[in-house]
Write a protein that binds this DNA or RNA. Sequence first.
DNA 1: TTGCGAATTGATAGCGCTAACACATAGAAT
DNA 2: ATTCTATGTGTTAGCGCTATCAATTCGCAA
Lengths: 332, 332
Amino acid sequence: MHEVAKHVGVSPMTVSRVLNGDANVKVDMRQRVQAAIKELGYSPNQAARNLARASTVHIGLLYSNPSAAYLNELLVGVLEQSSQAGCQIVLEKCGTRNERSVIEKLLRDGVDGILLPPPLSDSRVALEALRSARIPFISVATGRPDGEGLSVRINDFEAASEMTRLLLSLGHRNIGFIIGAANQTASAQRHAGFVAALKEAGIEACPDWIRQGTFSYRSGLLAAEELLTAAEHPSAIFASNDDMAAAAIAVAHRRQLEVPKDLTIVGFDDTPLATTIWPALTTVRQPVAAMARKAIELLLEEIRLRGSGRTLEPLQHFLNFSLVVRESSAKL
Amino acid sequence: MHEVAKHVGVSPMTVSRVLNGDANVKVDMRQRVQAAIKELGYSPNQAARNLARASTVHIGLLYSNPSAAYLNELLVGVLEQSSQAGCQIVLEKCGTRNERSVIEKLLRDGVDGILLPPPLSDSRVALEALRSARIPFISVATGRPDGEGLSVRINDFEAASEMTRLLLSLGHRNIGFIIGAANQTASAQRHAGFVAALKEAGIEACPDWIRQGTFSYRSGLLAAEELLTAAEHPSAIFASNDDMAAAAIAVAHRRQLEVPKDLTIVGFDDTPLATTIWPALTTVRQPVAAMARKAIELLLEEIRLRGSGRTLEPLQHFLNFSLVVRESSAKL
DNA sequence: TTGCGAATTGATAGCGCTAACACATAGAAT
DNA sequence: ATTCTATGTGTTAGCGCTATCAATTCGCAA
């Protein structure tokens, strides 16, 4: 840092201020410092920053099994960003009934903020507990209505619409849909996106071909069973996540239906499962690692701001999804 | 730390020495200090240690997609241990052909040690590159013969034997086996464990019912297809990992065989997939998170030792596996 | 007994950064 | 013109720990 300071001809303190985004630095000063930082390839020593600040930021990561599919990629993103930002992650597993007590444990442990992956990001109890504790938190991949704190997500509605349009473009008109867990807002948005895209194409969604699931493989099995039992069944099934799509494939195979020759099946999320099974799933890719990184970044900003009395305004940060076409979909 | 020092009536330096396992501390002194540490609930500030040591230990974690099943749990363990130990993790993804270049990149980035999860832990190329670079490394879940550096693993042979004994105890005598990828030593050990347990029960393994797989779902599909096509098929199939077991279930269902009523299928690893599918897999649980923690711990020790010229002797650390009985297995 | 090396402990000086305050300078208000 | 405030920058003093070397103690041979 001294190098940088000398190079610009200022005191190290000014460099520090630039690094920490202090408001009281002249614009051209800031730019000169940033230029020097880049030129010298300087990167701050996190250990020293933490030591000088006399505290390391601790971020609680509350995860629960149901979202195990995300966890993998989420952790990759969290690990990257946290080691880069020099904050510590406190992992805590939590069931569906003990959110409150686990959150209280994290608070006792002195975490400075909490990261909430699904399905916790949609848990009323958890959100209530966090809000009343007035601790900064951010939810990942939730579909909560705007204005309720920080979140990082993709546009589930748009993603589902786009996937539906893909199915339509493949010639499918009779499309079955398996809705996700009712308690997760993303489910409703995906469902709405599906219906909207159909309507856009002048097709009325057939209620018989829409089944409620819970995001679990088991629920996918049941839903697909129903969809494929009818004398006349859809030519394509759009499941709200990969687990249920995988289940649908299993059911299809049991009924001697070839995928994708006799039936197109697509999923959502692009979890490892999508490429494990055969045929590999056509699905919607969520950039979970990137979402995790962004979430940590925003959360740290919020924590820093709170420390100085201010606060980040409610913000939904959207990341781009993408369609991944693999072997489970085909032209009708 | 000063508190502790005052409490014992020594200088902080002595406390530091105890913490770092310095050899030159009298035994009773060490004990008094440790007692005080425990009594006062003192825990060292990692940021300060890293700063004072003028360097943070960086551990490279080289992962490749094929082992995605482990990754999740592995990362949980890595995250916990690394934040506790105050070292930084450098994640690096690597394909099957570019091990060498990725390792070189990690070395250029200045990592102090490397953690090798499967299947990299069995890659000759990777091991060779690491050995010639003389960098500390540890492999997780490899079956390499003894005397080749550090590793943390379970006893694959024993685990497979025990699972086989479980199948035998359920009354199965005609047991099919799907071998794992030929290039991973754990595959051979699992296979050997299976054969040994059969022999122990006075049964000769039937070559027709042993198929080579590659740990992939796809290979499991092929192998199971062959095993179940024969007029007389086994009453149980033991797949060397969960992916292949899941594939075997899919094949069974396609052939209208109920699992476990008509066919018992068991896996190995207890990946998330085991509980995703239905019926949930009876499998062997590897404590991957614990293995990761232990690996980080050993690796740090080795790095520290190398710094002072010594070195940890080649060591295979074994952790306990366990059998997890779920719905995919039943009495004959 | 004296002396000497080894073993053990203490004192000092930072590691790289930032909080807190001190100090300029410029413009606004009086 | 004088005082005041806001803004920008520099100075000082650590954050909690460890490397290094100095100081002390101890055991034991001469």
